[in-house]
Structures are given as C-alpha cells and as structure tokens.
C-alpha cells in the first residue's frame, strides 16, 4: 500500500496481460459488447489490465500468459540479448521494468528477473553517457527508445550536468517561481 498514490505505479498496472477465463462470469458485459447477455463464457480470451489480472489469477479464475515482451521465446529477448541499448522499449511497454517486476512472482518465471537486470544494466550505462553528451537537437530521437523510468534517469543526468556547469560559471540563483509559468510577458 506504500505506493497507493503513486501515479507511475497506477499507470504501470494498466498494462494489458493476455488471459483466458476459466469460469463464466455474470453481469460483466464490457469485454464483448456485441451481445446483450452480459456474460463472459469460460474459455474466452481477453487482454485484461494487470490490476484486474493479479486478483483474478490468485483466485484461479483466469489463466494468463506472460506479455509478449517478457516471453521466453519473444523477439524482445533476442534483441535485448543482441544489443540492449538500442531496443525500442518505449513502444513495447512504457513501464517495462515495473511490469516485469510485478509479473515475475505471479507466473513464477525465474528467467524474467535476470533478463530485466541485464537489460537495465546495459541500457543504464548508455543512458548516462547519452545524457551527458547528447546535444538538445538529437535528444528527442533518443528519448523515443526509453521507458518511463529510463527517461527520468536521462533527465536527472542532464539536469545534474547543467547544475554542474551553472555552479562552475556562477549563474543567477534567484528564479521566478516555476509554477508561474515560463512564458515571459512581452516587454
């Protein structure tokens, strides 16, 4: 419950997991709006968000498959193995590490943990180097490859470099309160 109000945690749990209903469920008509019976039959295949999956899976009401980007035989794994730093994780799963950490204990797949670690280690190094060296013009292109967490690391790296430069040069230390907006009134 420590992360109850955490925005990222909430959004990470929105990630879809392919699942199969093991029992019929009454009055749940949303997944398949074409019929009026408001009933989901046993055996129907749907992609459910993770917050729903965890509870239902623990009660053995549904069976799940590991999402494609964590699957043992998936292309993502091969790509990460080949060159982790340049895989586009953002388009596959915005909260790659968070979802991975949540799904691993649930399905009991012991290979997910090391896989995440390897991916993070290689990519972290690259993120830090890029944060210190990239010019603002090329940065947006690189940012499209990063997951949410990595983008935050990237920004942290960048802001520490600017803070360092500012400290060396001795810049202004009073600033307009950031909430008041950055747009300057025409003078």
């Amino acid at each position: 419950m420590a992360k109850y109000y955490d925005i990222d945690d909430i959004l990470a749990e929105e990630e879809l997991v392919p699942s199969v209903f093991q029992h019929a469920a009454n009055e749940v008509g949303l997944f398949d709006s074409s019929d009026d019976t408001n009933k989901v039959e046993a055996g129907s295949r749907v992609e459910l968000p993770f917050w729903l999956v965890r509870e239902l899976y623990l009660r053995q009401l549904i069976s799940i498959r590991v999402p494609p980007c964590f699957d043992r035989e998936s292309k993502t794994r091969e790509e990460i193995g080949a060159d982790a730093a340049h895989v586009d994780l953002r388009s596959r799963c915005l909260y790659f590490y968070e979802v991975g950490c949540k799904i691993a204990p649930l399905v009991g797949d012991k290979t997910i943990g090391p896989f995440l670690l390897v991916a993070f280690r290689t990519r972290y190094k690259e993120v830090l180097i890029k944060a210190h060296t990239l010019t603002p013009a090329v940065a947006p292109k690189y940012l499209t490859l990063l997951t949410n967490e990595e983008a935050k690391l990237y920004e942290a790296g960048q802001s520490s470099i600017t803070a360092f430069k500012k400290w060396r040069m001795g810049g202004p230390r009073f600033q307009m309160a950031p909430v008041l907006g950055r747009k300057r009134k025409p003078t």
């Binding site: 029992h23 009055e27 749940v28």
Partner: peptide, 10 residues
Amino acid sequence: KSDQFGALVH
C-alpha cells in the same frame, strides 16, 4: 461461482 466472479470484477 459465475456470480461471485462477476461481483469480484465489479
């Protein structure tokens, strides 16, 4: 069980 399942989802 189906009813309980539905209720749980809601």
